[in-house]
Simulated scan of single mutants.
Amino acid sequence: MTVYATVDSPLGELLLVGEESASAVGGTALVSLSLPGQKGAAEIKDDWRCDPGAFEEIAGQLRGYFAGELRHFAIEYAPGAGTDFQRCVWRAVEEIPYGETATYGQIAERVGAAGAGVRAVGTAIGRNPLLVVRPCHRVIGADGALRGYAGGVERKERLLGLEGALVS
């Protein structure tokens, strides 16, 4: 069954969506984490059940992150989202350390899609359903500029500032 909850954050009210899973910590595997006004944000459906308790562990980690106390999320994601290429890109994004950045070109090189693949990498990153916890905000332009972010470039800048990432 799909469950959801909202969590207050400095970026606005986050919408967490998950699937109940006996193997997941807290019993819920995260499917989506979206921000208000986000491009492609999840929308609550009638057959979903509101269950804030299902997300207590995740909400605690988010509070720790926004307080500057947590640098790495330990969250179980629901399998199956995205194409093989998107999942490969998302894994590369997850490897970017807290407080650091990587360019779209560097991610393309890591996944074997250098050159023309940079655009495909950007598209895959733009379809990341797990904002904040899968740190696509750490991916920047080759010139150091902040490029697109589904939650808005201002939020990307706030997240990088929180992490102390140096962006020119």
Rank of each mutant, 00 (worst) to 15 (best):
I58C: 12
G18D: 05
Q61T: 10
A114R: 13
G115N: 14
W90L: 01
S168H: 14
A116M: 13
I125M: 02
G12N: 11
T2L: 14
P129V: 08
M1I: 08
A120K: 11
G18W: 04
E95R: 15
K45H: 13
E157T: 08
T2S: 14
V17L: 06
G26V: 02
R138S: 02
V17W: 02
I44K: 12
V121L: 00
L16E: 11
I96L: 02
G26R: 00
S21W: 06
P10H: 06
G148P: 06
R63M: 08
A41K: 11
E109T: 09
E19D: 15
A5M: 05
A67K: 14
V31K: 13
V7W: 10
E56C: 08
E100M: 12
G53R: 13
V25Y: 07
Q38C: 10
A29F: 03
W90V: 01
I75Q: 03
L14H: 03
L131W: 06
S21T: 12
D47R: 15
S32K: 14
L11K: 09
A42C: 07
L14I: 03
H137F: 08
L146T: 01
D47E: 13
R158F: 07
E69Y: 07
M1C: 13
P135G: 00
G105C: 02
G161K: 09
I107W: 01
R127Y: 11
Y104C: 02
E157V: 05
L16W: 09
G12C: 10
A165S: 05
G105N: 02
G40S: 14
V118N: 00
V121D: 00
L33R: 07
G53L: 08
L131F: 12
A81T: 11
K156W: 07
I75C: 03
T6I: 05
I96A: 02
E20N: 07
G18Q: 03
I125V: 08
A5G: 11
P97Y: 00
L162H: 06
L130D: 06
C136N: 14
A92R: 02
T123K: 14
D46M: 12
R110L: 10
E69C: 06
E109S: 10
N128D: 15
A78H: 05
L62E: 03
P129K: 06
P36F: 04
G68L: 07
R71A: 08
D51P: 11
G117V: 07
L131A: 15
G60W: 11
G152I: 01
K39Q: 14
C88Y: 04
A81H: 14
A142T: 10
E20Y: 08
G53Y: 07
C88K: 15
I58D: 08
P10D: 08
R110S: 09
E157R: 15
A120Q: 11
A145Y: 09
G117E: 05
F55K: 09
G115C: 10
D143F: 01
F73C: 05
G152M: 02
W48Q: 05
D84M: 11
S168T: 12
K45F: 07
D46E: 15
I96R: 01
G161W: 04
F55P: 02
R119I: 11
H72G: 09
V167H: 00
A142G: 12
E20P: 05
V17I: 13
L159I: 01
V167N: 01
L159K: 03
A59I: 09
A102L: 13
A5Y: 07
